[in-house]
Design a binder for these strands. Structure first.
Lengths: 382, 382
DNA sequence: ATGAAAGCGCTAACAG
DNA sequence: CTGTTAGCGCTTTCAT
């Protein structure tokens, strides 16, 4: 260590570096002086090697630019940063990337731990990681083994649908996307399931013509997928409400609907899922799941493990809540049907404005199959 | 090295690890066998210490969840990953975080290099980094010293405004936000400047009543700020077009306008800035700047430096282009004025739909003060 | 082709 | 309080 050339031994320099109280002020100052003089920069790597800990966490995300993902990541980074950890981010968009990086996670000593966000892993991969004893926590995926934090997407789909039902809607469409060809997301499927459950419980037979699945959405939504979703508005007895499996899709819908000359929510109600930042911006009704907060929770759990804490419960279900904003209302004109080939609906002259109706919000997740979830509503502060 | 216990010397193990051709197949297999048997995992840290290189890059971003920022980051990560570098991400939201991390960047040997995104640095900080000789590239900020990649925000503001002028608009509002209290962003100011330049060139005196600055927007847009922007629609002789300093604000505007009972673009045109993913989704006209691509470019430049390349040009201006989608059109009713206290405009019965008008796009940045930029337009594929 | 040895920069006993 | 001495796990000559 170069600083040792300045009078003292390496031990003392180390002590100064780590602010050990057992160094005389005089020598400490001398060392400090030499350090700045020599432009000395302690090597993080050497420290890590010596201490056997990197103070770095690997975080795996899928399609980083999706708002829900990046909000989760932000929560993770905030907590990790506060605890003094560096966050190394891996953005997984293909199976190849996933396998390569998960493999390297298991087979190389990189970081002190890992957080895996919205990325389902194969059993073998989970096992490979488990064997290494690397502390891992999983967020938004059902990967058995590490502690994981999830929401009940089926219950969420049910909540959304029941809310629309409670408003008086009977013809409710579902707009989702297929899981990515390589990576196997399942949330949309579960939300769809919740939708069918809710309809069935209400005595309504789910109509396949009211269900539109777009091709997988990488980060942005495929505009062509939006087209096919819009086709739902052209069928006879057009739906009076639409439930989109994500807020991003819902926002796309909102605009497409209005371009079609229809009004939201007067002509058709729209509800999304996630409550990303933009949802509030466009006053979208949605099912809220913790995003930043879920990242923070996962990061805190990992830090616990790193501090020698017990894994605790293997699976934690985070709460969902209905946030009713301005894109949902009772169907204003239940008898509204398409006039055959006429694609565009004339705008009713008396059409009100969206903001005029008070927004409500329901608290707490539904949990079971009870259709009561959408009944206790609460006004949103906004 | 534990694997050495299996017959050979550490040197050989290292050779096997690095796929050196000068190891007999027999021994190689033997070593490999022992490795798996012993569940051996090479230590990235030890390699780094020995080789003197970390294969990791520090990336500093501000308000990670802003779409423009995360798209840039995605571009950075993609390239870095392809080149075999890990990306450690620092999300800076306060001056304290900035100073702490930039300080650590300068005073500790962390990574092999750094990319600083949308974060203006103080001279002293830049100097401290420069002294250390750490390879750095700057993206979307005017920090003199390292190679930097920027766009001409003034020219962009001018482009947007000139486009609206070319459509026939005369009363054009500007909606921006103040720079963050701690971090000093300047893009909105420059875009505002471009706006005033364009108006002035067109012989129009910028009207302070048509300029609305919201409080700084962290990641999400402040809804109250949106209110004050909306107030612009209540003044006598309401503007027929609005230029928002960012797409996020523009999207907020879009919805607020429609809630007010006005139509876009029939009653008021809206143009944004950035061309984030969501802009295409809602068919927002905007000034496109390279986002993912700019991140990729910055990362590639850094890799060049890391490979011993010359810094080259200190400042590279990335191109801007006008993307005309569905939220801008000629003012349909130039004489439209507010009827005094009446806040809501009745929707014209004959109002067309947004998608009916062909979208156009202009190519290339304007560069100078010439008002010709918005003339050569090109249809967008969509 | 491969073993031996030095060293990357730091921490952590262990003596004084 | 502070100097000394072993490593941490890997790469890299230099011999053999």
């Amino acid at each position: 260590m170069v600083a040792a050339e300045a009078g003292v031994g390496v031990g003392t320099v180390s002590r100064v570096l780590n602010g050990s109280p057992q160094v005389r002020e005089a020598t400490r100052h001398r060392v400090l002086a030499v350090m700045t003089e020599l432009q000395y920069r302690p090597s993080r790597v050497a420290t890590s090697l010596s201490r056997g800990t990197t103070r770095a966490i690997s975080v795996f995300v899928t399609f980083l630019t999706r708002p829900s993902v990046v909000q989760r990541l932000a929560g993770v980074i905030t907590v990790l940063d506060a605890k003094g950890y560096d966050t190394v981010v891996f953005n997984i968009e293909t199976a190849e990337q996933r396998d390569r990086h998960i493999n390297s996670l298991a087979n190389e000593a990189h970081a002190d731990g890992a957080i895996i966000v919205s990325l389902p892993l194969a059993r073998a991969q989970l096992e490979a990681i488990r064997v290494r004893g690397l502390p891992v926590v999983v967020l938004d995926a059902e990967s058995p083994g590490p502690p994981r934090f999830v929401v009940d997407n089926t219950a969420g789909g049910q909540m959304a649908t029941e809310y629309l039902l409670s408003l008086g809607h009977r013809r409710i469409a579902f707009v989702g996307d297929y899981s990515h060809p390589d990576l196997a997301f399942t949330s949309a499927q579960h939300r769809l399931k919740g939708y069918t459950v809710a309809l069935t419980l209400a005595g309504i037979k789910p109509d396949p013509d009211l269900i539109s699945m777009m091709p997988h959405s990488g980060s942005a939504v495929d505009p062509r997928g939006m087209q096919s979703a819009l086709a739902l508005l052209d069928i006879p007895r057009r739906p009076t409400a639409m439930f989109a499996a994500s807020d991003v899709q819902a926002i796309g819908l909102l605009h497409a609907i209005e371009e079609r000359g229809l009004r939201v929510p007067e002509d058709v109600s729209v509800i999304g899922f996630d409550d990303i930042d933009a949802a509030g911006l466009v006053r979208l009704s949605t099912i809220r799941q913790p995003l930043e907060e879920s990242g923070a929770i996962a990061a805190r759990k990992l830090c616990e493990l790193l501090d020698g804490g017990r894994p605790g419960r293997r699976r934690t279900v985070l709460p969902l809540e209905l946030v009713a904003r301005a894109t949902t209302s009772a169907p204003t004109n239940v008898s509204s049907v398409n006039t055959g080939a006429t694609k565009r609906q004339t705008v009713p002259a008396a059409a009100g404005q969206r903001a005029s109706r008070p927004a409500v919000r329901a608290r707490g997740p539904t949990g079971g199959a009870s259709p009561s979830s959408a009944t206790h509503v609460w006004r949103e502060p906004a």
